[in-house]
Design a protein around this nucleic acid. Structure first.
Length: 400
DNA sequence: CGAGATTCATGTGAAGTATACCTTTAGGCTTAA
DNA sequence: AAGCCTAAAGGTATACTTCACATGAATCTCGTA
């Protein structure tokens, strides 16, 4: 006990190198956004008519991850609704991330969570989908207002459930008496619109905004700006920002990654009682981020998925080695029987493996081996140094 | 020797099933007049 | 008689299974040079 009190005391008296760590969190919205003037202006001028209670055009936004799409949209809509509030213009913004499982990854759930934002609770299952539409419909049409629905990572939704949802959403306007909705779709898949129903495509992308990647210099400026607010003066060693930017620029100019890197490096520096963020902290941070991300994904998988993941690790944890669906499935059957777990069918396992590919846990592609059939060729995408740790987690969670 | 047919192992789409959950309805019980 | 609670009935979404067909290049077959 005494030890811990001591620990907390020193923790508090020890001065952190952070001034305000929040600034580096990905949820943080700075008051001025660098290098996105053009995009911000575009979005703002498209949305501005909302203040005169006209329906703004639908917007389709694309650009790779970490190019500031979400940030810019949130920033604009936040300012816009501030003005709207001041002038008592009825304007409502709904931000939804379609990637989140159990939140908005099916048509039903999307409309359900949307209704939830209007204080109309919808049960997680049981209602017919059109019933949910009706609930949503009456919720938004209850009083006159302009509603902007922001669908982040919209490509995820469509690839899983098709574009009917979008069609229904864009069509809903003609039925509404009081309100009008417009949709902002955000996607980081540039080819996303290609497989879209032409009607949906044309109405969703009445306006388009493109976010190009940042270059290394721009990322540096962003990092400096945020670093200045986040860290106390003189706590960043020379070259740290530069290296951080270089690492991120290597990955198509992903600013989110750069900021995360800087934050985690700072945390590591703090923890090791260092007075400055050093270059070595960056290296450590890179590992830690990757590790945490993967461990997080693995931990949050359902049991069956974990069993399959475990099978993959047993088969060949080597990054280079290739393996096929057949190998995986037969081994998986073994593991299931030794675990007393009812095995899924091969059909299902095939889908799960495809999902692992999407999650980046494995790399997979479908190949034909000619006379020897056709299969999914896979290789592990989890770095070697993490394998034992992942294995341990799975063992724990599967009671092995 | 080369064009076309064959073959294998599994991908993939569609339809069916089990489960968990929702609303509605009918019956049974209580309560108040 | 009206009100309230409970359990059964009837309905849905979702995760998974079952069924059946699609794939595509290595290999085989067979006619031809």
């Amino acid at each position: 006990m005494a030890n811990l009190i001591n620990f907390f005391e020193t923790f508090m008296s020890k001065n952190s190198i952070f001034k305000n760590k929040q600034v580096l969190q990905s949820s943080y919205i700075p008051e001025n956004i660098l290098h996105r003037e053009e995009q911000l202006n575009q979005i703002a001028s498209i949305l501005a008519p909302a203040l005169r209670e006209d329906r703004p055009s639908n917007i389709f936004i694309y650009g790779k991850t970490g190019t500031g799409k979400t940030l810019s949209v949130k920033y604009t809509t936040k300012q816009l609704s501030r003005v709207a509030d001041a002038r008592e213009v009825p304007l409502k913004m709904c931000y939804i991330n379609c990637k989140l499982k159990k939140v908005a990854d099916t048509e039903y759930r999307l409309i359900a969570t949307l209704s939830g934002l209007f204080r109309k609770k919808v049960p997680p299952t049981g209602l017919p989908t059109d019933e949910v539409y009706k609930i949503f419909f009456s919720a938004i049409d209850a009083e006159k207002s302009i509603i902007v629905i922001i669908l982040d990572e919209i490509d995820q939704l469509v690839s899983k459930t098709g574009d009917d949802v979008l069609y229904n959403l864009t069509r809903i306007n003609s039925e509404l008496k009081n309100s009008q909705i417009s949709i902002i779709g955000i996607s980081n898949d540039l080819t996303f619109t290609d497989n879209l129903d032409p009607r949906v495509k044309s109405s969703l992308s009445e306006e388009e905004v493109i976010f190009p990647p940042y270059n290394a210099i721009q990322i540096q400026q962003i990092l400096k700006e945020r670093g200045r607010k986040a860290f106390k003066k003189g706590t960043i060693a020379a070259g740290v920002i530069e290296k951080c930017a270089a690492i991120a620029a290597r990955e198509h100019g992903d600013a989110r990654r750069a900021l995360e890197l800087l934050r985690v490096a700072g945390e590591l520096a703090d923890r090791s009682n260092s007075k400055k963020v050093m270059l070595k902290h960056l290296d450590e941070a890179e590992d830690k981020i990757e590790r945490d991300k993967i461990l997080e994904v693995v931990k949050s998988q359902p049991k069956q998925y974990q069993a399959i993941m475990y099978t993959l690790l047993i088969i060949k944890p080597d990054k280079k080695k290739r393996f096929f669906t057949g190998d995986v499935y037969s081994k998986y059957m073994d593991i299931c029987s030794s675990l007393n777990l009812r095995p899924l069918t091969q059909r299902r396992v095939s889908d799960v493996l495809a999902e692992f590919d999407m999650l980046g846990l494995i790399r997979a592609r479908v190949i034909s081996k000619g006379r020897y059939g056709r299969t999914r060729e896979m290789s592990m995408n989890i770095p070697d140094f993490l394998i034992p740790k992942v294995k341990l987690i799975l063992k724990n969670s599967l009671n092995i």
